[in-house]
């Protein structure tokens, strides 16, 4: 019985010791005191970053619109050419379009949060700044994930589908030449 009690105590102690650094790490951003000077400086940097993020969003959106148009044209011509696997091409195009829309809405959200960070009060109410900054960090990660998802959808689905279509075109052209 004594051995059991001692082992249980040691085990619980070990658990507390193991979890202590994790909890302290998780609480660091919110509990870390931010001086008014540091807050003001951080807000200026956030403003610079917000401008860059807005430019990136504009650049990404314009690129996505152009890509959508190009892919749509190819899907239409594949349908007109009675490409048998046009459904795969259409599905790839649709997935890419969904990913692009997701990125656009997430980027807008991120821009709004960055604005909130810039407008957060410093000084005694610095907690508001750190909280909004934490939200902005989460949304930054989501926006990046969205952009990567678009890249993935285009490079891993649309481009291979287009290559398949090109192969089919070559095969059908060869067949026509052979017949002639």
């Amino acid at each position: 019985m004594k051995i059991k009690k001692t082992s249980l105590f040691i085990l619980s102690l070990a658990l507390v010791v193991a979890l202590l650094p994790v909890s302290s790490y998780a609480q660091t951003p919110t509990e870390e005191p931010v001086s008014e000077e540091g807050c003001t400086m951080a807000k200026a940097k956030v403003a610079t970053h917000a401008t860059a993020a807005a430019a990136a969003q504009t650049d990404h959106t314009a690129k996505y619109t152009r890509l959508k148009s190009d892919i749509d044209t190819l899907v239409s011509s594949a349908t007109a050419a009675k490409y048998p696997d046009v459904e795969t091409l259409t599905a790839a195009r649709d997935n890419a379009a969904i990913a692009m829309n997701t990125y656009t809405s997430q980027a807008k959200k991120y821009a709004t949060t960055l604005e909130k960070v810039q407008n957060a009060a410093c000084g005694e109410e610095a907690g508001q700044f750190t909280q909004t900054l934490a939200t902005a960090r989460t949304e930054l990660a989501l926006t990046r994930t969205g952009s990567l998802a678009v890249k993935s959808a285009v490079t891993k689905s649309v481009v291979p589908a287009l290559r398949d279509y090109a192969s089919w075109l070559k095969a059908s052209a060869d067949t026509t030449q052979e017949k002639q």
Binding site: A53, R163, K170, A173
Partner: peptide, 30 residues
């Protein structure tokens, strides 16, 4: 559509999407 034309389009799309600059979305930004 020809094979060459579609392949060229596919390559252009791939290059375009890969050239997207996502450095602004790095965790280091914030």
């Amino acid at each position: 559509d020809t094979e060459a034309r579609v392949n060229a389009s596919a390559a252009a799309i791939e290059n375009d999407i890969n050239s997207t600059d996502d450095t602004v979305y790095d965790d280091n930004s914030l």
